[in-house]
């Protein structure tokens, strides 16, 4: 792993840990798209996770929370994940594995304004996501970049 990549790694790690510590979210995670030709999307960094199962997930572009955010480049917020259109293991594995009841997700862009990943934060006990939650994440991400 090159120095630049390693630095990026540590930086993302610090980012999720910082958000987890400073805000009241129960779970914070970052999913990134590979730059190999297959462009698989994995959850790479997480804080507040209950197990390591999130590492096994490979996301489907266009489906699920992160999939939608990556496909559209638009933020996503949902307060009733259990009854969402895509509820269920196949399409929202991260919310099932981490038992999230509400979540907010925003796209991560590279310097060329291409979507390369998702920053997601969520609650386990019915706390509500507001427009403010999205702004908070956005601020952290801006400072990070």
């Amino acid at each position: 792993m090159g120095d630049e990549k390693l630095a990026k790694n540590i930086a993302y790690h610090d980012l999720v840990r910082m958000i987890y510590q400073q805000e009241d979210f129960d779970f914070v995670g970052v999913a990134l798209q590979d730059d190999t030709s297959w462009r698989k999307i994995h959850w790479r960094y997480a804080a507040g996770n209950t197990s390591q199962r999130f590492r096994k997930i490979i996301l489907r572009s266009g489906i699920g929370i992160a999939g939608l955010v990556i496909r559209t480049g638009e933020p996503f917020a949902e307060n009733d994940l259990a009854h969402h259109q895509y509820a269920g293991y196949m399409s929202q594995p991260i919310t099932m594995i981490e038992h999230l009841t509400s979540a907010v997700a925003i796209p991560i862009f590279d310097q060329n304004q291409l979507v390369i990943g998702v920053l997601l934060a969520g609650y386990r006990h019915q706390q509500t996501i507001t427009a403010h939650s999205g702004h908070v994440l956005q601020e952290y991400l801006q400072r990070f970049q």
Partner: peptide, 8 residues
């Protein structure tokens, strides 16, 4: 299935 769900 493992990729979709994270289950071992």
């Amino acid at each position: 299935l493992e990729e979709n769900t994270g289950i071992d």
